[in-house]
């Protein structure tokens, strides 16, 4: 993460892709509304991607110590429960992170 060309390359690639997506309806609204593939992907992918990101980041964290994945599963279950019932994003994240930090630093 210290190669200048790489950092700016990534920044520009991400900027172009993000801007392109946000601008698409302003330049191609008719095509978008009629494309069933885009509609399907748009409905299907958000939940799938979030699920993948959760699994992937949990797997990554669990690989870093000897008590995985039980600490990760406990903390994520806590986040899911609190978010489901309170809808309070920052509070859910804080509780999950706190639980995980306690488990990793004082229970292991």
């Amino acid at each position: 993460m210290s190669d200048l060309g790489y950092i700016f390359g990534v920044a520009i690639v991400m900027a172009v892709v993000t801007f392109g997506l946000r601008a698409l309806p302003f330049v191609a609204s008719r095509w978008l509304q009629s494309s069933s593939l885009v509609k399907r992907a748009g409905k299907f992918l958000p939940l799938a991607i979030m699920t993948l990101l959760v699994i992937h980041s949990v797997a990554g964290a669990a690989a870093g110590h000897s008590n995985g994945p039980w600490f990760e599963i406990t903390a994520i279950a806590l986040v899911i429960l609190i978010q489901w019932f309170t809808k309070h994003t920052l509070f859910s994240m804080l509780a999950g992170t706190l639980a995980y930090v306690v488990l990793r630093n004082w229970i292991a």
Binding site: P46, L47, M50, T51, L53, V54, S57, V58, A61, H65, E72, A75, I76, V79, I80, Q83, W84, T89, S92, M93, G96, T97, Y100, V101, L103, R104, N105
Partner: peptide
């Protein structure tokens, strides 16, 4: 402290719940 970066996993979990 170890484990602070778990906040990202928690963010993804929150977004998953909302999805």
């Amino acid at each position: 402290l170890v484990g602070l970066d778990f906040v990202l996993s928690c963010l993804f979990a929150v977004l998953m719940v909302e999805q």
